[in-house]
Design a protein around this nucleic acid. Structure first.
Lengths: 179, 179
DNA sequence: GCTAACATACCGTCCAGTTGGTCGGTTTTG
DNA sequence: CAAAACCGACCAACTGGACGGTATGTTAGC
């Protein structure tokens, strides 16, 4: 029996987005994907917005988890949390472009969605600042990684462009310089 | 006589987006805004997608124009085109957040929209690389500006956060270092 | 027998795109 | 030169389907 809890619904929604794009993330599609009727789906998430919010939270949680793993694996030793943050960003975007892209679309259409995320963002900023000898530069590096992230998930940059790997490496070097 | 050409339609569409948000950019709304019937509007842009494409092109054109102005004004002297590019990004995002946000939403929902923009992007990259003694770092600085841009238009960062101005200043310093 | 977890059926709205036509001007042709 | 044919710009009304959400069950477990 495929258990149908909120997590599996979120996973189904992610699959829908990956397979059919942001525009096609519809309640019917999600319901079908997780073998539920629309009514059943709406029993768990009373509105589409709340489903989107949960998806966003799941995504950011995964990012933080991944960061923690990188820190645990010792990457942190070379450049504070910043290094791990950036590595997890790169990992995520290499793993999957369409999900982040769709989440960006959702957030851009309805900024209220990321209210709950702002606190986490503030936390990241503090973390990054405190673990570095040059907090401003550290933040800029984080933003650079995010800018690259955006370019990548929006397909502005070809996924196999060699410059991409070079910039990645260079970013990590710069991180190490200011740990 | 309010002339109704493609440009004025695009301006109307931008107004709609600014006033009512990305989600509400509907053909009817645009038509009403520029005093045209929907049929008339669709005479100029045969699909909504083509209107969006035109809006994107207009926005990127404005950005390049603004960059050229900064270069002409002598800002370029201190850090190549990169400086001007970054300044124009900051100018744009301080000027208006909702239009860029909506364009990002549109692009994220339909990546095909920015196919025509990729060539311009390639041009920017070349420009930035050629005008700097450290092309990789120059690109990273550009991406950092874009990351900041994203954070700003998505309201992840408070618009009046003082750190924002500090990062802006620091970015420009770094530009000057590698001109 | 009460609640959580579903299902079925339906509603109302929104909205991109279509249809078929009007109207003023320009070009063609007899 | 004038009628006819044509054309670009525009409009009002409509269609058809997608989609979020509701209303009303049904069933299984405690």
């Amino acid at each position: 029996m495929s258990k149908v809890d909120k997590d599996s619904i979120i996973r189904a929604a992610e699959d829908v987005v990956r397979e059919r794009g942001a525009r096609k993330l519809t309640l019917d599609a999600v319901a079908e994907k997780c073998g539920l009727s629309k009514g059943g789906l709406l029993h768990h998430f009373r509105t589409k917005q709340s489903l989107l919010k949960a998806m966003l939270e799941a995504a950011t949680a995964r990012e933080s988890e991944l960061t923690a793993e990188f820190v645990a694996a010792g990457c942190g030793a070379a450049g504070g949390t910043l290094y791990a943050r950036i590595e997890s960003l790169f990992t995520l975007m290499e793993d999957d472009e369409s999900l982040p892209r769709s989440l960006i679309a959702a957030v851009a259409e309805d900024p209220a969605l990321l209210e709950p995320i702002k606190t986490r963002e503030a936390l990241i900023r503090r973390e990054v600042c405190e673990s570095s000898s040059d907090p401003e530069l550290a933040q800029l590096l984080l933003y650079a990684a995010r800018g690259l992230f955006l370019g990548r998930v929006l397909n502005v940059m070809e996924p196999d462009d060699p410059v991409y790997e070079r910039l990645h490496a260079r970013l990590l070097e710069l991180c190490a310089d200011i740990d």
